[in-house]
Design a binder for these strands. Structure first.
Lengths: 180, 180
DNA sequence: TTGTACGTACAGTTTTTTCTGTACGTATTG
DNA sequence: CAATACGTACAGAAAAAACTGTACGTACAA
């Protein structure tokens, strides 16, 4: 094994490690491989570059680069004289984490909150129903209690996302370990 | 639509909302449905209960309850005189979030860190190789720089996980919004 | 204007994941 | 000691996701 092969092996280990954990970002392993490869290339790449490098179709590259882009793991960059789209990985992994966290959870909180609001309104209305029994009323009250509890939880989650988005999380957990 | 149907509709909305976001916990929608159903039942359930309630096989219930259990979303509970396994959802959603975060990310950090350590050692050794050229040496140095950077990042992530695990996150983002 | 290069929508295929039914090991009951 | 109840391993079926090749719309070049 020559030096170049050893270098490749070292890179491949890291890339595979990324590939096998990228599901935490909601992406399939191949997108992780794409990201890993781009991480070690020290230049923006075109879809054809990626296709050649990974031995996968250009269509796949196009699809997964969009996912990577939406998850804010890569940026499209521009270079004069180059007609093809160029992409490169973001270099601030702390920010990548914060962006992923923010994008994924904000969306979830939004969907959940809307559902809770609707159901709460329905249940409050339902309490007035003519055919209401004491038994059913008790169940409804319990459900309302549950919904109020999870609404409070989602409010906390929303504030947690704010703390990440506003970089306040770095006050709690500083980027650099203090020198001894 | 009678009152009971309206109640069901309200519950179903919440359950579906959970089902469609449970992928954030690395679980399939059906596990989310299972969790949602259990959330509204005010008693521990057996596998047969769940199977009947969701119209799915007992085998599936067994498999997904294990996933839910590993993700720390449900607990197995004991009741005297009952031979079947009983499960109920955890009632502290804040803690559920913290546990999920901790479990999933701790594992990722551990795997990544091991890979980085190995590759760093290899690259440092590789620098001494006989057939080393200036050009290749420069590439190796660049790779080492990259690995040192992401090692630092994973160290931060590890400390972030600590902050969740130690409940310090609730200092930064309190559970209850202060009264006005 | 015509020709060429590029990215992606779409349909079909392959691969992976989820779900089911059977069968079996263990534990409890009579 | 049976006999029964229970949970799950395992193999196959069904469903979902990922991947490919073709075809098309758009933009730039000549």
């Amino acid at each position: 094994m020559d030096a170049y092969e050893k270098l490749e092996k070292s890179r491949k280990r890291i890339t595979e490690s990324i590939a096998q954990n990228i599901h935490l970002y909601g992406l399939p392993p191949s997108a992780g491989r794409q990201f890993g490869m781009m991480f070690f290339e020290n230049r923006p790449l075109t879809l054809d570059d990626m296709s050649a490098e990974l031995g996968m179709s250009k269509t796949s590259m196009s699809t997964s680069i969009r996912s990577l882009s939406e998850a804010k793991l890569v940026d499209r960059v521009w270079e004069r004289g180059v007609r093809k789209d160029l992409y490169e990985v973001k270099d601030d992994w702390y920010q990548i984490f914060v962006d992923m966290f923010t994008v994924k959870w904000r969306r979830a909180v939004s969907l959940h909150t809307a559902a809770i609001r609707k159901s709460l309104a329905e249940l409050k209305e339902l309490k007035k129903a003519d055919d209401m029994t004491d038994e059913l009323l008790a169940v409804i009250e319990t459900d309302i209690e549950k919904l109020l509890y999870i609404r409070e939880y989602y409010d906390w989650l929303d504030r947690l996302i704010d703390a990440f988005e506003d970089q306040k999380i770095f006050d709690l957990v500083p980027r650099l370990e203090e020198e001894a």
